[in-house]
Design a protein around this nucleic acid. Structure first.
Length: 224
DNA sequence: TGCCAGGCCGGGT
DNA sequence: ACCCGGCATGGC
């Protein structure tokens, strides 16, 4: 079987190895991480989650009922902590009311329907929604982020002005409908982005994708 | 030391 | 329908 991005995928897998993002944690913890990592380094998120765990507050009921001041202090290392405390409570209270606090129950819902429900929550935008759908609920929803965009633009796959939904569709059309591929591909794109497509710098010559690219167009300098 | 990190919201054009 | 300022900590 062949699919359009297979060569890219295997090149990345060979270079970086399996990323297995968000493994072995509860689905709710994954969702919390998705909110906390908004525009934030993952290391800071780990501290915040560690604080929540140590305080026994890593569940929907605890998040929903803990006073906002206390909650925000616990997640402080993740930055934007007052906003994010609110966003966590929004999500937790919605999950309790709508799905009995159960991500598994939530995951019984149809993907598109669920995506709309998540997007309707204040504090959950397209990337956070797709991260929750893919990594917590096990839905086939490809995740696009700043790195995904940068990698795709630097390699001339898409125009810099492409919208979130368009870029998401670009990948979904070129990948097989498999959770593991969606999962790994997104994580691998982040890795290659971090290492070879940094901001304010031209595409690195040693990018592992260089040799396999058909060079569909001129490498755009670094407009995003 | 400034710049950046796995965004999103609300108000303004 | 975009555009922008604000939000905040920790690492390099």
């Amino acid at each position: 079987m062949e699919w359009p991005m297979k060569q890219v995928y295997e090149k990345l897998l060979q270079h970086f190895g399996p990323q297995h993002w968000w493994p072995g944690q509860s689905p709710f913890e994954v969702a919390v991480g998705a909110i906390l990592t908004q525009n934030t380094n993952w290391r800071n998120v780990e501290r915040a989650i560690g604080n929540l765990k140590a305080a026994g507050k890593l569940g929907p009921k605890a998040i929903a009922s803990t006073p906002i001041e206390q909650l925000s202090e616990l997640i402080r290392p993740a930055g934007y902590y007052r906003q994010k405390a609110k966003r966590l409570q929004n999500f937790a209270r919605w999950l309790l009311q709508r799905y009995e606090g159960s991500i598994e129950r939530m995951a019984e819902q149809d993907c598109q329907q669920l995506r709309e429900e998540l997007l309707a929550l204040s504090g959950i935008g397209p990337e956070t929604a797709d991260s929750i759908l893919l990594y917590a609920a096990g839905k086939l929803s490809f995740v696009v982020d700043a790195y995904t965009l940068r990698v795709a633009v630097r390699h001339g796959w898409v125009e810099p002005e492409v919208s979130y939904e368009e870029l998401k569709q670009y990948f979904e059309e070129r990948l097989p409908a498999e959770l593991d591929i969606y999962n790994e591909m997104h994580a691998l794109l982040v890795q290659v982005g971090k290492q070879f497509c940094q901001r304010r710098r031209p595409l690195c010559d040693s990018c592992p994708l260089r040799p396999v690219l058909p060079a569909t167009g001129p490498y755009e300098p670094w407009s995003e």
